[in-house]
Design a protein around this nucleic acid. Structure first.
Length: 516
RNA sequence: GGCGCUAUGGUGCAACGGUUAGCACGCGGCCCUUUCAAGGCCGAAAUACGGGUUCGAUUCCCGUUAGCGCUACCA
C-alpha cells in the first residue's frame, strides 16, 4: 500500500497482506480535517497511543476526509503537528479515505448483492431531521406497533422516485437486536427497529454510478482492511456502533472490541467548543505548555490508574494505562489544573530535559546566544559551563509558561531591560537608597571571590553601616539589578548574573536616580 | 419527541457491600521568608432525589430528576 497523499488518486490505498508483521493489538486514530486537533481528539489519540504502546501493538493514522464539502486539506498538517507535539506517533499511515473510494464502493456493492443494502431514490429531506416516531406516510404501520424510524419503499425494491440518482442505504433488519461488547461500558444491546436505514454511499453528483462513502461505511471497511482490533473513540459514537456492527456482519467480518471514552466538557458542562477558550491543541503549544505536562493532564481526563498518584510521566502512563481504568462519566476540562501540572513539570523535570525547551523559547524570542549552549556565562571566561542550567534552575519555580523565560526573566538574558516604575516606587522611596546602592556597588566590586555568601555578607554589612534593615537594601537592589520587584532570591541572582553585571547595573541605577 | 449513556465536594479522580468517604486542583488560614513563587501544616467543601435488596449501601436493582450523546446523502 502507499502512504501519504503523494499518490495518484485512482489507486485505492489498500493494506497489503504483509503490511504488518506484528500480530496482536492494532488501533487507529481517525481525525476528520474539518477543524484543528481539539483536546477531545487529542485525548482519544493519546489513549489509543498509550494502549498500543503498552500492548506492543500497532497504531494506525487515518484521515477521514470523505466529505469533500467540509473537508479542508490544509488542516491536516496542523493535526499532524499537534499529534507530534503531544508525542503521539503512529506506525502506519496517514491513510486518506478520499483516496480509498473504490474500496468503499466495492463493499457497498457487496452489501447490495447479498441483500443487506438497497438503492434508495428518496430525496434526502425525507430522512433528514425531525421526528421519526411515526411510521412513514407511504407504508403500513407494523402490526407490533409503530415503527420508530423511517423505512421507505425503496428497501423493498419499489423506487419512491424513479429516475433519481440513488444512494445506497443499509437495509437494517426488521425486528431483533444488535449487541456488541464495549471494554468501558460493557455489553450493549440496541433494538434494530430504532436504527435508521443509514446511507452507505451518497448519490452520484456527476455521471458516476455512486458518490462518496459516508462515515459508517468508510470506518467499517477501513477498520476491517486495516485489521483494527480495538476501536477506542469518543462516547459520541456509542449510538453509531450497532450500525457498524451490522455492517461488519454484512461484510462477513467479526467486529473488533470497542472502547468508548467519555467526552470532555467545558466549565459549563457543555461540550467543549471555541466559546470555552482554547480547544485547539496547538494553541497550548503556542502558549508555552510543556507537552509532557499537557499529556499528563489529558491522560487523567477520563482515566485513572486507580490510586492517588497524579504526577505521571509518560513512562508511568505507558506502564499503567489500561482500558479498565477508563471512566464512564464526562469530564470537565479544568484549565487551572492544567497550569498546575505545567508548573509541576517546570519544577520537577531533570534540568537537562527542560533546557532544550528553554533554548527553543529563547530562540523564539530572539534572546538566545549560541555561547549558552556550551553553558558559558555571558562575558565570562567560559569556565562556568553550567550557567544556563543554573539560571534556569533558579528561575523555574516562578515560571508558569515557557514564554515567561523571555518576558518575566528578561533581565537574566539581556542587558536591554527596563526598570519597572512601580517597583522603583515601591522599593526606592527611602531617601537613603541611592547612597546605599552606590556603597553596595563599591563593596561588591571589591569582592575577590564572587559567590552567594560573599554577596550576602557584603550586602548585610552595607545595610548595617547605613543604619537600615537588610531587607530594605535587598529589595532596592533587586529592582536595580533585574528591574522588577519580584525575582528569585537576591544573592543567587547576583551569582548567576556575575560580578561585573551586578556592579554595572547598580551604578547605572544610581546614575539614573536624578532622571525619571 | 424517540433511543442510549451517565450521576461522589466548584473541578479531576479514589473507595469496586462494612473507611471518621481518601488524594489532587482551586479556595481560606498559618509557617517559612529578602520580593514573588515553591514547599510544609491546617481548614471549608461531596455520595442528586425517592423507593427497594441486604445484618449493612457511595457501591446492587427500580423509578424520578438532571446532564450529555445519537437521531444528516456530517464525522
Amino acid at each position: 500500500y502507499t502512504e501519504g497523499s503523494h499518490q495518484d488518486g485512482n489507486t485505492p490505498q489498500v493494506m497489503s497482506e504483509t503490511a504488518n508483521k506484528t500480530p496482536g493489538v492494532r488501533v487507529r486514530f481517525a481525525p476528520s480535517p474539518t477543524g484543528y486537533l481539539h483536546v477531545g481528539g487529542a485525548r482519544t489519540a493519546l489513549f489509543n497511543w498509550l494502549f498500543a504502546r503498552r500492548q506492543g501493538g500497532t497504531m494506525v493514522l487515518r484521515i477521514e476526509d470523505t466529505d469533500a464539502e467540509r473537508n479542508k486539506p490544509e488542516l491536516v498538517k496542523g493535526i499532524l503537528d499537534g499529534l507530534q507535539w503531544l508525542g503521539v506517533d503512529w506506525d502506519e499511515g496517514p491513510f486518506y479515505q478520499s483516496q480509498r473510494t473504490e474500496l468503499y464502493r466495492a463493499a457497498a456493492k457487496k452489501c447490495l448483492s447479498n441483500g443487506s443494502a438497497f438503492l434508495c431514490y428518496c430525496p434526502a429531506e425525507k430522512y433528514a431531521g425531525g421526528d421519526h416516531t411515526e411510521p412513514a406516510q407511504d407504508e403500513e404501520p407494523k402490526a407490533g406497533g409503530p415503527r420508530r424510524v423511517t423505512r421507505c419503499t425503496c428497501r423493498d425494491g419499489i423506487p419512491s422516485t424513479p429516475g433519481a440518482k440513488p444512494a445506497v442505504r443499509f437495509k437494517v433488519p426488521l425486528g431483533g437486536t444488535t449487541k456488541f461488547f464495549d471494554a468501558v461500558f460493557g455489553e450493549s444491546e440496541f433494538s434494530n427497529d430504532e436504527i435508521e436505514d443509514f446511507v452507505l454511499l451518497r448519490s452520484a453528483k456527476g455521471d458516476e454510478e455512486f458518490g462518496q462513502s459516508m462515515y459508517q461505511l468508510g470506518v467499517v471497511v477501513d477498520d476491517i482492511d486495516m485489521r483494527i482490533t480495538h476501536v477506542i473513540r469518543g462516547a459520541d459514537h456509542i449510538s453509531n456502533t450497532p450500525k457498524q456492527v451490522l455492517l461488519y456482519r454484512a461484510l462477513g467480518a467479526e467486529p473488533p472490541v470497542f472502547a468508548h471514552v467519555p467526552l470532555i466538557l467545558g466549565a459549563d458542562k457543555r461540550r467543549l467548543s471555541k466559546r470555552h477558550g482554547a480547544t485547539d491543541v496547538n494553541m497550548y503549544r503556542a502558549e508555552g505548555f510543556l507537552p509532557e505536562a499537557f499529556r499528563n493532564f489529558l491522560a487523567l481526563l477520563g482515566w485513572s490508574p486507580g490510586g492517588d498518584e497524579e504526577f505521571l510521566r509518560t513512562k508511568d502512563l505507558l506502564q499503567k494505562f489500561s482500558l479498565e481504568g477508563v471512566s464512564r462519566t464526562n469530564a470537565v476540562f479544568d484549565r487551572p489544573k492544567l497550569e498546575w501540572f505545567n508548573t509541576q513539570y517546570l519544577q520537577k523535570l531533570p534540568i537537562e530535559e527542560l533546557l532544550p525547551e528553554v533554548e527553543n523559547e529563547l530562540k523564539r524570542s530572539g534572546l538566545w546566544k549560541p555561547e549558552w549552549a556550551a553553558g558559558a556565562a555571558p562575558g565570562s571566561d567560559g569556565r562556568d559551563h553550567a550557567w544556563l542550567a543554573k539560571t534556569v534552575d533558579l528561575l523555574r519555580p516562578r515560571i508558569r509558561l515557557l514564554p515567561d523565560f523571555s518576558s518575566w526573566s528578561l533581565a537574566f538574558f539581556t542587558d536591554d531591560f527596563q526598570r519597572d516604575p512601580a517597583a522603583k516606587e515601591k522599593f526606592w522611596k527611602d531617601a537613603k537608597v541611592p547612597e546605599l546602592l552606590a556603597k553596595l556597588a563599591d563593596a561588591l566590586a571589591a569582592i575577590p571571590e564572587w559567590n552567594h555568601d560573599a554577596c550576602d555578607h557584603v550586602s548585610r554589612a552595607v545595610a548595617e553601616a547605613g543604619g537600615v534593615k537588610a531587607g530594605l537594601l535587598i529589595n532596592a537592589t533587586r529592582v536595580a539589578i533585574v528591574g522588577q520587584a519580584v525575582a528569585p532570591p537576591l544573592f543567587d541572582t547576583m551569582v548567576v548574573l556575575g560580578q561585573q553585571r551586578v556592579v554595572g547595573r547598580l551604578r547605572e541605577a544610581v546614575a539614573g536616580f536624578g532622571k525619571s
